[in-house]
Write a protein that binds this DNA or RNA. Structure first.
Lengths: 245, 245
DNA sequence: AGGGCTATGTAACAACCGGTAACGGCGCTG
DNA sequence: CAGCGCCGTTACCGGTTGTTACATAGCCCT
């Protein structure tokens, strides 16, 4: 990658100078900016890879600027603040900052953050490394594959055990397709080391299904989502909508 | 740039111990194995980058084992033997060994061979690079390998003990790759080799993991960084960005 | 409809696994 | 020598998961 251009936005001239200099020593093209006008000038004029934005700009509110910039351009932003309280941090994220760092900061820390954000940005633009998290939705339930989180229609988080989660994952990936116990066992890697038949694996799957039902079916006795296909196995009989993220 | 895993196969406990220790000092994850069964356990379980195989195993014939392994898996093998006769060397090559070294061997020589075979296999040459100072960043944390410093997302320095630091280092070098307790122990050089199972090493790793968690996890009860892989071991499940320095 | 067979649901149990508090040994430092 | 921090061991607890046994439901045949 070419030398990254970093906009250093801070109303304190001394801070600007210091940060700018430090970044330059570390190979970046640092562009100091004292006001939002300065920022816009640079954004209009040319390429900017990252904005280091101080939360407290004399007259202007950095958070607002951040939100505004975010809504207009897709430039990574790291918020900088003298306030390290957690809620500040959260606010920073809410307005769309990519990261947050407290002042006074450790140079190593700053550099690490900058590089992290830059490489993240680069990665997202190259199709190769895209790591997509999927979210599945069915009958009001939401299953976030990455975090392994399951939310009930009421929005309450349900904790599934590892096995239950794996089962759900398998099912969700094959909606409306009847799966035999053997297939499920294979997907869950249950077999054990003695190449057991599905029967020897035995009722493990049945029991597991029961346990999952007890957690995600409104009335486990009359399952609507995880249905039994008698003589065959089980079907996930809900429509699933998938969202990449 | 993962740390290479080297299986040290020798029926003589003292030799195993010595070689293992030497390799560990030079940055490898050395896994001692006394029998073919041990070898298979490791091969089944996980990735092994290289096997150092003694020709004379008490009951078994190392050459046969070598041939057998070769026919099954594509793992580089270096044969080790007390007999330096040429025909032995030839035999070693015939059964598929990548290199051959006579006992007693010069440590430097061993290391050279190991590196050669590893790089031929286009594996990491981290045996060499490992001395580089690196800074790792994950979830806002910064770990400076040279100074052994760890900074929290808030920029506060956290003091880890020697062991905790070593554990972190091992994990950070293998993000998203589940490590067994045994592998971790090997990397930390915990047991030496007394033919102990991972169980004999006992809960040391578990406890250590717990201690590290209590320092770097926001909520140690629900670890986001250092996750448990039930029945397997532990995974460092954060994206890590690395900077050479 | 009813008998008999098989498939499935599930409660109870036991084995196993991982988290962790507590303890004690060890080495270092003052 | 006392105090302290580090670290492996142990024991206990709680959660997970496969097994078993028994109850029930579904299906086929007469």
């Amino acid at each position: 990658m070419t030398i990254p251009r970093i906009l250093v936005v801070d109303d304190d001239q001394d801070v600007r100078q210091m940060v700018t200099q430090f970044l330059r020593q570390n190979g970046a093209m640092a562009l100091p900016a004292g006001t939002e006008a300065d920022v816009r000038k640079h954004l209009d004029g040319g390429r900017v890879d990252l904005i280091l934005l101080d939360v407290m700009l004399g007259d202007e509110n950095g958070l607002e600027i951040c939100a505004r910039l975010r809504s207009e351009q897709d430039v990574p932003i790291i918020m900088v603040s003298a306030l390290s309280a957690d809620h500040q941090r959260m606010e920073g994220y809410e307005v769309g900052a990519d990261d947050y760092i407290a002042k006074p900061f450790n140079p190593d820390l700053l550099l690490a953050r900058v590089k992290a954000v830059l490489s993240r940005a680069r990665r997202s633009s190259s199709l190769v490394h895209r790591r997509n998290t999927k979210t599945f939705e069915f009958h009001g339930w939401v299953y976030n594959a990455k975090r392994g989180e399951v939310l009930s229609p009421a929005g309450i988080q349900v904790t599934l055990s590892r096995r239950e989660l794996a089962l759900l994952q398998t099912l969700v990936a094959n909606p409306h397709i009847p799966l035999t116990r053997e297939e499920i066992a294979a997907a869950l890697d249950v077999t054990g080391d003695t190449g057991q038949t599905a029967d020897a694996t035995g009722r493990a799957i049945d029991v597991l299904v029961g346990r999952l039902r007890s957690k995600i079916e409104k009335n486990p006795k009359d399952p609507q989502i995880l249905r039994t296909e008698r003589g065959v196995g089980y079907v996930f009989s809900a429509d699933v909508t998938v969202q990449d993220q």
